[in-house]
Design a binder for these strands. Structure first.
Length: 232
DNA sequence: AACCAGGACGTGA
DNA sequence: TCACGTCATGGT
């Protein structure tokens, strides 16, 4: 039997070969005001954050995408940007009701508005430091997956992100137990994958992309091509 | 027209 | 600890 390290590496290389680099996290494309063109997302604009504003944007996106399709999050982020809400300098100036209406398309808007408000306070107290995982988990509204997403994509920390897709895929492949807890699964990945930022970032993004193709609730998991790849 | 999406929190047992 | 209910919009 092949060691789990070799399997995780084989899976990564296979997914990378199939889908190519994903370039997560998506960053909004902000057109200049004088063009009057609405903000949009372009895959070619995905990149590692370059400044504080983009770090903040990723954090807000990570909160907004909780149990929500990214397409809906895009609408909310564009709304937020249009009221100047993605600039960390202005986060105190937006009133609560305006915030709620802007993020409405992302669902759970009452809860998420409160989560964003809580995060804002935390973010400002951070100054320009990198938060620890514990710091993030102490913020109301930030659980393990959101914390790891923020660490990995906003702050470039090698913290592997686990989500429902990860559990579905790897339990289907027999590499983890389906009722393992978050931190158990996380440590399996972190102990068996080279601790490299780009690999961590791409691996999680590739898992999501692959899951969208083969691991929707209604899909038949036995059709996953990774099964045959692992059999060789 | 139900069902689900890149979760997290509150509650009762 | 753990299982379950709740939160909400938009796409299929």
């Amino acid at each position: 039997m092949i060691h789990i390290k070799a399997k995780l590496e084989l899976i990564y290389k296979s997914l990378y070969k199939i889908y190519g680099p994903q370039g997560w996290w998506p960053i909004i494309k902000k057109n200049s005001k004088d063009t009057g063109i609405a903000c949009t997302y372009h895959p070619e604009d995905y990149h590692i954050p370059q400044n504080k504003s983009q770090i903040y944007e990723i954090c807000i996106g990570a909160i907004l995408t909780q149990n929500t399709a990214w397409k809906n999050v895009e609408k909310a982020l564009i709304n937020l940007h249009q009221i100047n809400g993605l600039n960390p300098k202005n986060i105190n100036k937006i009133n609560f009701e305006e915030l709620k209406q802007a993020i409405r398309p992302a669902g759970y808007f009452n809860q998420k508005a409160k989560k964003i408000q809580q995060f804002n306070e935390f973010f400002q107290n951070l100054k320009n430091k990198t938060p620890s995982r514990e710091n993030l988990l102490n913020v109301w509204g930030i659980g393990p997956e959101t914390a790891d997403s923020i660490l990995l994509y906003a702050y470039k920390q090698t913290s592997f992100v686990i989500d429902v897709y990860t559990k579905r895929i790897f339990s289907n492949l027999g590499l983890i137990d389906e009722n393992m807890k978050y931190d158990e699964v996380k440590s399996i990945f972190e102990q068996n994958i080279k601790s490299d930022l780009i690999i961590y970032q791409e691996y999680h993004a590739l898992i999501v992309e692959h899951a969208k193709n083969f691991y929707n609730k209604k899909s038949n998991y036995s059709k996953d091509p990774l099964i045959k790849i692992l059999q060789k």
